[in-house]
């Protein structure tokens, strides 16, 4: 098992495929920190570096709700920053609530570690001469989970430090809060990872995997569509993985932490159970 993990890390570090999502995440972090807009991928030209449209954070919207969206957009970013910074807004904590966006990193990690084995046919070299299917599956689960958790951790703490450097400690919730929030997110990260691992084992075509992987978050929205008209099922909306990520930061009640962790465990059990059952019987081409 350790040998499998070592070989996968060796390959991940040399394949250079992860450089693209890492570069995108770093770009988004800096842009988001500068805008104090946790979910921002687009940004502004505050530093004369970026030109795209600003996506304004929800707390900021509430802060200046008397203004229309159009008026807001026309406000200089400097003014928006000052308004937000003076509001007691905890930027780093808010940014953590948007860690669901790390799904793109998980998508690539599972794609490189598992899907590429199938698309290039290299899996046959491993299964015919190195390890059995059980160990192969377990090691891939471990590697992708490690990559997802490490990637999200690095992302979260880069946000924390970059924000402290650029925005100062006034908009920071503090290292301890950030760390606890991140820890509460781990079950959701692992549940999300399990879904991508399942997808990578089910869809063994690279192109289809990427398309479905990008569309997967839309699938989570189905929970809303399906439960919206039935009031008794509204409680399910609390357990969408995206919502669990968010509420792991904002809702620190123990009962929610426990129930959401159980939901995540169920998602993992289903995903890995289905994935391994399929993989065990699969004829490798």
């Amino acid at each position: 098992m350790i040998n499998m993990i070592r070989s996968d890390i060796y390959r991940l570090l040399r394949s250079k495929v992860l450089i693209i999502p890492i570069a995108l995440v770093l770009y988004a972090v800096i842009a988001s920190v500068v805008n104090i807009a946790p979910a921002a991928i687009g940004t502004t030209d505050l530093l004369g570096l970026f030109q795209a449209e600003t996506i304004v954070s929800q707390p900021m919207m509430e802060l200046i709700k008397e203004k229309s969206y159009g008026e807001l957009q026309e406000l200089p970013i400097k003014v928006l920053r000052e308004m937000t910074l003076s509001s007691g807004y905890q930027y780093d904590r808010a940014a953590l609530s948007c860690n669901f966006n790390m799904l793109y990193f998980v998508l690539v990690a599972a794609g490189v570690s598992i899907n590429q084995d199938f698309t290039c046919g290299c899996i046959k070299n491993t299964l015919s001469s190195a390890v059995g299917r059980g160990r192969y599956f377990a090691s891939k689960v471990l590697v992708v989970n490690l990559a997802a958790i490490a990637g999200t951790a690095v992302h979260s703490f880069i946000i924390f430090w970059v924000s402290r450097i650029i925005n100062g400690s006034a908009v920071s919730a503090g290292g301890a809060v950030v760390f606890r929030s991140f820890c509460r997110q781990i079950p959701a990260i692992m549940a999300l990872t399990s879904v991508y691992v399942l997808l990578a084992f089910v869809v063994r075509s690279g192109v289809l995997y990427n398309i479905l992987g990008i569309l997967l978050p839309e699938g989570f929205s189905l929970i809303y569509l399906l439960t919206d008209s039935v009031k008794r099922l509204h409680f399910l909306q609390k357990y969408d993985i995206m919502v669990i990520m968010l509420r792991s930061v904002t809702d620190v009640a123990l009962s929610y932490t426990i129930t959401s962790s159980l939901v995540c465990a169920a998602v993992m059990a289903l995903s890995y159970g289905a994935g391994y059952t399929l993989f065990r019987r699969l004829d490798i081409k």
Binding site: R11, R14, S15, K16, C120, C122, S128, S129, A130, V131
Partner: peptide
Amino acid sequence: MHRVGSLIERPAFFPNL
């Protein structure tokens, strides 16, 4: 399986390595 070597059909490796 670690005591078995094989080349079955076409050789398959990672293209960028």
